[in-house]
Structure formats: C-alpha cells, structure tokens
Write a protein that binds this DNA or RNA. Structure first.
Length: 506
RNA sequence: GACAGCGUAGCUCAGCUGGUAGAGCAACAGUCUUUUAAGCCGUGGGUCCUGGGUUCGAGCCCCAGCGCUGUCACCA
C-alpha cells in the first residue's frame, strides 16, 4: 500500500461520503455535453445577452465558496469557463445536501463535473454559466499541481519540474495548457504533408518494423528475438530498403511516416524512437526532389503559422522558396577557407587536425569530411539551406554523381544548425550497390559499428530492376521542434524515453 | 561517458558562520448569495533523495550512491 498524503486520504474520505449519499462517483451513462468553454465565450454577445442554456463538462479547476453561492471554473478541451453555483438554484427543494455537503465539501479540484445552466455576465464582466444542475462525472483522488494566474497574467506556482512533466504528461497537459498547441501543431504538420503528398497521388504505405536485417541508415539497432521462428529480429532504423522494394514493384510514388529506433545516445536532439517520413518517387532525381522539399516545407510553415517566417529561439527562419544551395565542398570552403575537393584521406586527416576536429582512427574518408562539415558548417546554417553532392563513401545508397567523380547525387537541408532532411537520386545499379555494401562491410571490420550490413534480398530486388528514383527522408521530430519553437525533442514527443522511475516504496 | 548545478510540505520556493524546519498557494474547521491568485479567522501537514561518516548536535560539513537538469562528448 503506497503511502498516502494527507490530501489523498482526504479525497478518499470524500469519495466514501459521496458513495454513502447514494451518488455514483463514476457514473456510466453519457453526459449530453452540447457546448465548450471557448465557443461559449466567443459566441456571447454582451449587447444582447440571450441567457442561452448550455451543458458543459470538464475538470473543476478552482473553487471559490462564498456562503450560499460559489464560483467554480470548469476546464474542458477548449479552455476554461466560470460557473456560478448558487445553493437555491441547484437545490430548488428543501434538501440542500447537494450544495452544502457535496459541492462545498466533497468535491475537490480536478474532479470532473457536468453543469447545465444559462450563460450570463457577472457584475465584474466575466462570461459565466449560472448552474441549474450540477453532477459529479468522475472523482479525482490525486491533487493536481495548483497553478494560478493572477490579474496581471503572472503565473504562480507553475508545474515546472521537467522530469515530472515528462513522466506525468497527463498532468502536464491538464495544468500547462499551452503545450497542447505544440502537439496540435505537430499533427497539423503531418496533415499538411499528407494533404500535399496525397494530392500528388503518392501512396501512403506501411512496411515492417521488425526486420531480420536492419538497413537504410548508419546506426546501431535494437535487437529482439522471435520465439516461434527462433530468430533475431531488429527494430528498424529506417524503412528505405522496403520502400524501394515497392518502387521495384511498380508503385511509382510511396511514402511512410515511420517510427524508427536507434540504439544510441540520448540528447535534446535524440530520442531512441523517433519519426521520419520517407518518400520515393520513380523517374525523378535529386534536383527535382529539392524543389519538392522547398514546396512541402514552405506549405507546412504556412499551414501552421499562416506565414513562411517562423520564430525559433533567437532567429526568425524564413522558409520562403527558393532556399540557398551549396555543394558540400563549397560550404566547407566558405566556412573554413580550405578547398578539400582534391584531398586524399591522409590530407583530410591532416586538415581535420589543423581545424582541431577529433577524428577517430576507424573513420573513412567520407566520415572525416562529414565531421568537418558537421563541426565547421552545419551550426552556422540557420536559414534553410541545401547542401549537395556528398562524398560517395558516406552515402552507400545514393547514385554516383552524373558529372562529378567521387561524389553522389545527394542533398541535405540544414536549418537552425541541424539537418532536417536527407535525399538522393537513389542508387539503382545492383552491381554498384553490391560493391557499396561490401565497402561498408570493410568499414565495419575497421571498427565502425554503424556500418551497414549487406541485404541480399534487397540486392535481388534491384537485380529485377528499379527505375531511376528520387528518395527523401525528413526527421519529423526535428522539423516539429523548428515549427513549434521547441528547444528539446522531449517537448515534441508526448512520452519521451526516460530512465525507469525509481520504484516507490510499497 | 566527462564536468557543473540541483534534490526541503500536494505545487513553487526560503532556510545565515552546523543548534532536529518556514512562507504563499493547496488541504482541513468556521464565516460570507457576483467572486476571480476572492476575503476574514483558526488548524493540521515534512524518512529535509538514500546510505555511511565527522560532531555533544547535520537540511547545512565530508564520502559513496540514486535521480533530474545543463554543457560537452557520442549520435547521418
């Protein structure tokens, strides 16, 4: 039996008293809600008060008793509205128990109540409901954090402990109402993208989360075991290789919002499970895909903010097309003054050293270039910028560049110092693809534990033939952070991964 | 993983050079039929993160641990 606080004991006693009065604290039947707080306030005309009858329901969030009359505030999905509860209105007969005992003493903040009443304005000018009927819909046994906002709009006693807010998101949502907007905007982002992609006729699909081989990205996987088949399965780190199989199958435009899982460090930019959208379109190339990304992300910004400009931290980011475009070598030269385009691995290692960038011995040429870029360029790219033409070594699934040897047709969009998408002209030459996988195996042997594994079935699919295809991945959490001005990935995920809660004393 | 900071009532926090805890809100009792951080009056509520140590005495000092936060590292 968990230790109960004084207030929890109190609430349980109140619950018993309610039951003793013959009132069901958790009634089954529906409550015929027909109005919401914000809508009532918005539609009220102070010049022609019509005393309209409404039925509302929600949590009781404040309780001001003044003898035979009281004010209480109900919080519903839309917001809050004040309710005027006068004893003789909710207890028209001789029996005043409902007001004197139940309402005044046995109801607690956080209880769900239902109210029928008429809309009016108080002396002080607050649009309120004059209750004629009040019922308990669900009793709350744990006290919510009490947050109050005074007349000057100053918040008192905010519920601020980040740990508690993430662990008890349900409480956070009740008490810190403004976070709801972040999650609504996140959903708007998904809807906006779906609308755009569906309108183009692309098919939203689902592919396996449990995979016998993990592929499509460079990352360490989560490993699990299937009992009946007695085999190791991995949680997907990307869905690229499956979506390409669908392109092989003749579905010319496919996309999937996928939860991916990477068994790596956690930070304000990394959650072990996160969401990407991946999109593949046949007969297109990466140039075409850049235009799509600009159009898509600009639309998302407009759908959420009614503007291409979005405030993020200290910056105003403008997603208006067209975005700046640099090749990776141009970007490195721009920010360091060094032209690395002709360098071999040894020279690159030397350059990294000169730039004071730590390079692990196991890293190949591509990873070294990526390190230099990540260190010296990426953080400075605030406005949305395309970086194109990556070294072939770091892009084993991308097609070799049509005119620049050693490079692939790949781009990333960088925004607010972070990558928000990654795309290429997809490699569809099965012989080249096999070689690239074999190079990855070599990197793996050198100690790169994120090197890709070889997927024979995927190669078999390519051997049947895949049309030229452009592919794209967008990190939905990262984009959501930007679109909602959130500083941490935990703020755009309802239930971010946490260490297990310390077991409470039984 | 490294470094720094934090952990005191349901919530937000105070607590001096060590003398076994305080405030506001919340709760409880009373009062009040238009209040809004309602008011007035009174009351209760704490394993001061955990475990050791120093000391006559530890919320405070020391050691270890746990948890969280931040920065860095890791991380397409």
């Amino acid at each position: 039996m968990a230790h109960l606080s004084e207030q929890e004991i109190n609430r349980r006693e109140n619950l018993q008293k309610i039951i003793d009065l013959g009132i069901n604290p958790y009634p089954s039947e529906l409550f015929p809600v027909n109005a919401y707080a914000e809508e009532i306030k918005a539609s009220f005309n102070p010049d022609a008060p019509d005393e309209k009858e409404v039925i509302v329901a929600g949590r009781m969030m404040s309780h001001r008793v003044m003898g035979k009359a009281s004010f209480t505030e109900i919080q519903d999905a839309s917001g809050r509205i004040q309710v005027y509860v006068a004893r003789d209105l909710i207890c028209p007969g001789e029996d005043k128990t409902l007001y004197n005992e139940v309402f005044k003493h046995y109801l607690d903040l956080g209880d769900f109540i239902g109210v029928r009443g008429t809309v009016f304005v108080t002396k002080v000018g607050e649009i309120s409901i004059r209750a004629t009927e009040l019922v308990l819909l669900s009793k709350s046994l744990k006290p919510l954090p009490v947050v109050k906002v005074d007349a000057d709009g100053v918040t008192h006693d905010a519920f601020t402990d980040p740990e508690q807010r993430y662990r008890r998101r349900y409480v956070d949502l009740v008490v810190n109402r403004e976070i709801r907007k972040t999650f609504e905007d996140r959903t708007k982002m998904y809807n906006s993208m779906r609308e755009y992609l569906n309108e183009k006729g692309y098919l939203e699909v689902e592919t396996p989360v449990l995979q016998p081989l993990y592929g499509g990205a460079a990352a360490r996987p989560f490993k699990t075991h299937h009992n009946t088949l007695d085999m190791t399965l991995y949680l997907r780190i990307a869905n690229e290789l499956y979506l390409k199989r669908l392109i092989v199958g003749g579905i010319d435009g496919v996309y999937e919002f996928s939860k991916d899982f990477r068994n790596e460090g956690m930070s304000r930019f990394h959650n072990p499970e996160f969401t990407q959208i991946e999109l593949y379109v046949a007969y297109k190339d990466y140039e075409w895909m850049m235009n799509l990304v600009e159009e898509l992300v600009e639309k998302v910004a407009i759908d959420i903010h009614q503007d291409t400009k979005v405030t993020v931290g200290d910056h105003v980011i403008d997603f208006k097309r067209p975005w700046k475009r640099y090749t990776m070598f141009e970007a490195i030269e721009h920010f360091t003054g060094i032209d690395i385009s002709e360098m071999d691995e040894a020279a690159l290692r030397e350059t990294a050293k000169k730039l004071e960038i730590h390079i692990d011995g196991s890293l190949g040429k591509g990873k070294i270039i990526d390190e230099i870029f990540g260190e010296k360029c990426e953080p400075h790219l605030i406005q949305p910028t395309f970086i194109t033409d990556y070294p072939v070594e770091m892009s084993p699934l991308a097609k070799k560049h049509r005119s620049k040897p050693g490079l692939v047709e790949r781009f990333e969009a960088i925004c607010n110092g972070k990558e928000i998408c990654n795309a290429f002209s997809e490699l569809n030459d099965p012989i080249d693809q096999r070689q690239r996988f074999e190079e990855q195996l070599e990197l793996g042997k050198r100690g790169d534990d994120e090197a890709m594994v070889l997927d024979e079935d995927f190669l078999r699919a390519l051997e049947y033939g895949m049309p030229p295809t452009a592919g794209l991945g967008i990190g939905m959490d990262r984009l959501a952070m930007i679109m909602t001005n959130s500083n941490s990935i935990q703020d755009v995920i309802f239930f971010p991964q946490m260490k297990p809660e310390k077991k409470q004393e039984a």
